[in-house]
Design a protein around this nucleic acid. Structure first.
Lengths: 210, 210
DNA sequence: TTAAAAATATGATTTATATCATACTTTTGC
DNA sequence: GCAAAAGTATGATATAAATCATATTTTTAA
């Protein structure tokens, strides 16, 4: 992913966001693409005013806003900083010009989209058929894989239970019950917002079709 | 979509499939990409042996198997002909070589993926938050938009109720009840496998968040 | 530093939707 | 042309998960 940064290195503009600040919102016109230098960001789609489905948690090095590079020039998703974050912004016109002349970059981005599409469609299938406990299990495995864990085995991302639930595609209450049950069975260890996976094998099992 | 056909016109190979025949299956190694010349194809992800989520119905002119063009060289989805279909096949190596030299084609394909991703993520959100009646309503609107309707207003695709249910992300029984209810309310007209949308406005309303 | 807001925790209740059961009809393959 | 398989149709029942209610704790911002 980092490989394409040099190509647009010149035209960048650095922006800082506080925790809870919105970077862009679905329905807003696309102005450019963002690269996350520092911090963590959630990408989500809203449903009504209260509900949302979190599609992705972005970390340092990730690009954000690429979903807007389609025909529609409107963001199909929203992005909010989960901690103080620094992003560099490249306006669409320049980015697209770069893509037009840099075939390698375009090819990489295309492959990247292809992977994202695979991931989205797998999750779609899971939302349709996997039970909530399975989705909670998968959520934890995904976070562990994407963000890693420290020496104590604690996953390197701090999230509210509500955000975890919105990522798993369920309600806060149900998520809480599920993860609590897993804690009782010593599959995970919880302490405040810290989560450690103790039995990855068991989680894998829970997220496998029965 | 048709615009990129000429670029690979030479290396093609024509294949015919009967109704119900599998074109490729998830987990199989990717050999190439397909262009649907004639017929209709369902693209789906399996869950266990009985269940599936249909991601997309492809029609004449559509490309199929593009999801395999990521890092993994394994099809993440399956494809099955819904009626006698003719496809033209282009092997991955040649297609990728073409992409490497044809920036315009790569750019178009990238945009195409971006659109697909938007679509997938919107459906993801719907599976998480929209009720089944809403999803059934949206399913019908989408089919009407994608396949059009004849003079009598009948949608130009013939599907089993089971496939319709698998596309809406529900069971056959629930789908049946929902669409039946819509027929009683004169929102749609049913006759065998024929479906006509009578009140698109009402369907739109049902698929809007409450 | 303190009041307000957000997040956590958990029991009780409701509801949407899946599952099960069964009969009938249409389609398909030999 | 006919038997088997696939699809359609519907009622009854089960259940997973959402919703509601409420108390406590933690975090945030003035």
């Amino acid at each position: 992913m980092k490989d394409w940064l040099p190509a647009i290195d010149s035209h960048r503009q650095t922006l800082a966001y506080k925790k809870g600040e919105t970077i862009f919102e679905e329905g807003m016109p696309v102005k450019g693409i963002y690269f996350l230098n520092r911090g963590k960001v959630k990408i989500y789609r809203k449903w009504g005013h209260q509900k949302q489905l979190i599609l992705h948690f972005a970390k340092e090095g990730d690009i954000i806003g690429y979903r807007g590079l389609a025909n529609e020039s409107i963001y199909p998703v929203s992005a909010m900083a989960l901690e103080p974050s620094t992003l560099c912004f490249v306006d669409t016109v320049f980015f697209e010009t770069t893509l037009r002349v840099n075939n390698e970059l375009t090819y990489k981005l295309m492959q990247f989209y292809s992977n994202e599409l695979q991931y989205a469609e797998r999750r779609m299938r899971n939302l349709a058929h996997m039970d909530v406990k399975g989705r909670v299990a998968e959520t934890l495995l995904m976070l562990k894989k994407d963000f890693g864990e420290n020496k104590e085995g604690i996953i390197n991302i701090t999230l509210t239970k509500q955000d975890l639930a919105s990522f798993a595609g369920t309600t806060y209450e149900t998520f809480f019950r599920m993860i609590n049950e897993m804690a009782k069975q010593k599959i995970v260890r919880l302490s405040g917002k810290e989560i450690a996976v103790l039995k990855a094998r068991k989680l894998k099992e829970l997220s496998t079709m029965k």
